[in-house]
Simulated scan of single mutants.
Amino acid sequence: MVIWLIIIGAAAGFLATRIMHVRMGVVETVLLGMAGAVIGGLVLRVLITVTGALAGLVGAVLGAVLLIWLWQTYVRRK
């Protein structure tokens, strides 16, 4: 697990320093990448949780609309 974090951190740090045009040493690059992976992972989890909750709300509303339509179409025939 730790080795995988170092590998991902090195790759992320390398890409980030190239994108930002910054020169750093290997240790700083790996540490920067590892910290970025932790922060990015937390932000992504929060976004997925929020979007998941919103998707659940949208699904619930669509399900309720479908049930109302079925009720009006087949149960309450006038």
Rank of each mutant, 00 (worst) to 15 (best):
T29M: 02
V46L: 12
L70M: 09
V58P: 03
V58K: 10
G33M: 05
V43P: 06
G40V: 07
G25D: 14
G52F: 02
G56D: 14
L62Q: 14
T51I: 11
M24R: 15
V61K: 05
R23S: 14
L57K: 12
V26D: 05
A35S: 12
R45P: 03
L54Q: 10
A60E: 02
I48S: 07
I39F: 00
V75P: 03
V38C: 05
Y74D: 08
A37F: 10
G56R: 03
R45V: 09
A60M: 09
Y74G: 07
L67K: 13
T49N: 12
V58F: 01
G52C: 05
Y74A: 11
L57T: 05
Y74K: 10
G36T: 03
A35Y: 00
V58E: 01
G40R: 04
A35R: 05
L62A: 14
T51E: 08
G52R: 04
A64M: 07
L67Y: 07
V30Y: 00
I68E: 03
T73D: 10
V46W: 06
G36I: 01
E28A: 06
L32H: 03
G40M: 09
V38A: 13
R23T: 15
L62G: 07
V58W: 04
I48N: 11
I39N: 00
L67V: 03
L31A: 15
L32D: 02
T73Q: 02
G63T: 02
I39Y: 10
G63Y: 02
G25K: 10
A64D: 08
V58A: 13
T51L: 15
T51A: 09
A35E: 06
W69L: 14
L57Q: 13
L66G: 07
V46G: 04
G63K: 00
T49W: 07
G63H: 04
L62E: 13
G56E: 13
V61M: 07
V43D: 06
W71T: 09
V27F: 13
G25E: 00
G41E: 01
V43Q: 09
A35N: 11
L31K: 10
W69A: 15
G56C: 05
V61H: 00
L57M: 12
L44F: 12
G59H: 08
A53V: 15
A35G: 10
M34D: 02
A37Q: 10
W69Y: 12
L42R: 11
A60C: 05
M34C: 03
T49H: 10
L66T: 14
Y74S: 11
L70Y: 08
L57I: 06
L62H: 06
